[in-house]
Nucleic acid binder design. Structure first.
Lengths: 209, 209
DNA sequence: GTTAGCATGTAAGGAGTTACATGATTTT
DNA sequence: AAAATCATGTAACTCCTTACATGCTAAC
């Protein structure tokens, strides 16, 4: 019954925070938000909505409440969900948090999608956390690459090279965003010559698992 | 008990085809192969190996067969797996196939990793299938982007733009690879100086048994 | 002599999908 | 009136991870 994945719950809360919606429509918005193509199924969505209602974070206008179906508007007893007061509070809490899970792949995208509603400090913390995380990966991949380089055929090598490039590009993208955020906050010039993130920048570090 | 995912099975068969290995080592190789960072757990690996043994595709030297542990080499009764005749045949069959699942994200990477053992026609078919698949995505994202453009805040917009760019880059990468494949198939003047500058795997066929 | 790393496994559970089941409304 | 699309939901199953359980060997 529990645990319908943080990510999905957060995404739903965020979309319903913008505007109330029924499940079917929510799904379409969700599919754009999450990775932009992976088709989230109803088998995931509806149970999750049910769970959120159970937690009192959202409420659905159940059929009884629906105004008499005007010839044009009534499609079915469709349930329009919206955030409750509790839900709004909960969402705001999540938005101002930034734990170590925050910068994992899926999570990060959703958090980023709601950056417009996130305060500047949290935005920066998340961007930097993400950057550090990716830099770690880069290190790992580079090391293992240099260890195995000559044993590999050209295709595996090319795959490795390409993967590396993708992550490097992602890091540069983050650098740009971070610069931008700092630009709007305060001017803090820092030498751009630190590729392998060391202990710098706040206590964003922390090992999980 | 069944169904340990095509992808994982294929990856294992492929690695064992190169050289026999025991589980612990296999896992490390697998982690490099699959997305290069996601840590596959033993809880996935060992049951999968068991399944493959059950299907008769691989065989493990069970402890009885192991030569007496020489002081230096013996760590434990570690089980070294290798492909059976059936396994080799099965692997070869998979390698020459190219169904529509072949060009989905995870699947594609693994197939690509074993391109050195794949025949040229299948390579080309897979690359082109993948390219078409990505182009489809691109279309979808572009359309939905143009439909929603002005309703979105700058961050969501930036996320969309960045996602689009990533896929575009991926398509260009594939284009390069496809060009390269075609170049090596048709008789092309194999001058000593190949146009090396591009991002494609060069050095055409080279050695490897 | 205890910690760290190698090596193999199992049981429980989380997060999602597919396939099924249902029914209203709009389009052809 | 048939087909497509909107709309909601459930049950079973897939694939993977976490946490647990075991024991050997190398290094400190």
């Amino acid at each position: 019954m529990r645990g319908r994945s943080d990510v999905l719950e957060l995404a739903i809360l965020g979309l319903l925070h913008e505007t109330p919606m029924h499940g079917y429509e929510l799904r379409k918005r969700l599919n754009l938000l999450l990775g932009s193509f992976r088709a989230l199924s109803y088998g995931s969505l509806y149970p999750c909505l049910k769970g959120l209602v159970g937690q009192g974070l959202i409420a659905g206008t159940d059929a009884s409440q629906t105004p008499p179906p005007h010839a044009l508007s009534g499609k079915r007893a469709r349930i329009v969900y919206e955030l409750t007061a509790d839900g709004k509070e909960h969402f705001a809490e999540i938005l101002s948090s930034s734990g170590p899970t925050t910068w994992e792949d899926e999570h990060f995208d959703v958090r980023f999608a709601f950056f417009a509603q996130t305060d500047a400090e949290t935005r920066l913390r998340i961007l930097e956390g993400r950057r550090t995380r990716l830099a770690e990966r880069l290190d790992q991949v580079r090391q293992s690459a240099s260890r195995t380089r000559d044993r590999l055929d050209e295709y595996t090598l090319e795959l490795q090279r390409h993967g590396l490039e993708q992550v490097e590009r992602e890091v540069r993208w983050l650098d740009g965003l971070i610069d931008n955020e700092r630009g709007t906050r305060r001017v803090k010039p820092e030498g751009p010559g630190r590729p392998a993130g060391s202990a710098t920048a706040d206590g964003a570090d922390a090992s999980q698992h």
